[in-house]
Nucleic acid binder design. Structure first.
Length: 222
DNA sequence: GCCCAGGTGGGTA
DNA sequence: TACCCACATGGG
């Protein structure tokens, strides 16, 4: 029997402890990080964020006024730097043109309105939108990522491929709609994924879910 | 050298 | 709707 989503949360929480996400100094930094981390290792994103901070450019006005090439240079370590520079600039331009340059005015929208607005922006897909909702705007919107799909399938909680909205709605239905729970849960899934649920070469021998993970039970242990 | 990482969007059948 | 591909750097 696969664990319930509540049991899974408890196991992860006991094993890894509080995660205290998102690692950022401001809601705007969360948004920048959410865009830069698309299909990219977080350590690469940290280099890009450090570059932006060192250039005193981690704010709405700077990203808007910075020449495209200069912004690309600063965020280069995060990969896909050309399209990410376009995405960052588009976001800040919309913020200035439609919300007077104030995140608070964007965040004045209700949950559905904010999600719809974010999803309409180029380069903001469901995971990035939900990350912004949850970790920048403090809304109870569950974030699904590649680790979430992989872990649910390996645990037998889901069979076959589910799309983003199906998986998100599973968590939204089964869990209390509390920001703190969603916040910790996604962070714990990433922690588990990084350590024990890589796409290949799984290191399952020390996995805290070994007893309930089909993959762990049927795979060589390093 | 090869694989992969806290995705997204455009094209094709 | 369901795949396939481009986008790019840096670590293991």
């Amino acid at each position: 029997m696969p664990p319930s989503l509540t049991e899974l949360f408890e196991k992860l929480h006991v094993h890894f402890g509080p995660q205290q996400w998102w690692p950022a100094d401001s809601p705007f930094e969360v948004i920048v990080g959410a865009i830069l981390t698309q299909n990219t290792n977080w350590t690469n994103v940290e280099k890009a964020i450090a570059n932006l901070k060192q250039a005193d450019a981690l704010d709405i006005e700077s990203i808007t006024s910075l020449p495209q090439e200069k912004l690309e240079e600063l965020i280069r370590p995060s990969g896909f730097f050309r399209q990410k520079a376009v995405r960052l600039k588009h976001f800040t331009r919309v913020l200035i043109e439609n919300y007077d340059g104030h995140l608070d005015r964007l965040f004045a929208l209700d949950n559905d309105g904010l999600r719809t607005t974010l999803l309409a922006l180029p380069g903001i897909g469901p995971e990035t939108a939900d990350s912004i909702l949850l970790y920048a705007a403090d809304r109870p919107s569950f974030v699904v990522d590649a680790y979430t799909h992989r872990i649910l399938e390996r645990l037998g909680i889901q069979q076959g491929k589910q799309n983003y909205e199906q998986t998100r709605s599973l968590f939204m239905r089964k869990l209390p709609a509390e920001t703190d729970v969603f916040n910790e849960y996604h962070a714990l899934i990433v922690q588990l994924g990084k350590q024990f649920c890589r796409k290949s070469k799984p290191r399952c021998s020390d996995c805290p879910l070994l007893s309930c993970c089909r993959f762990g039970n049927s795979t060589t242990k390093d």
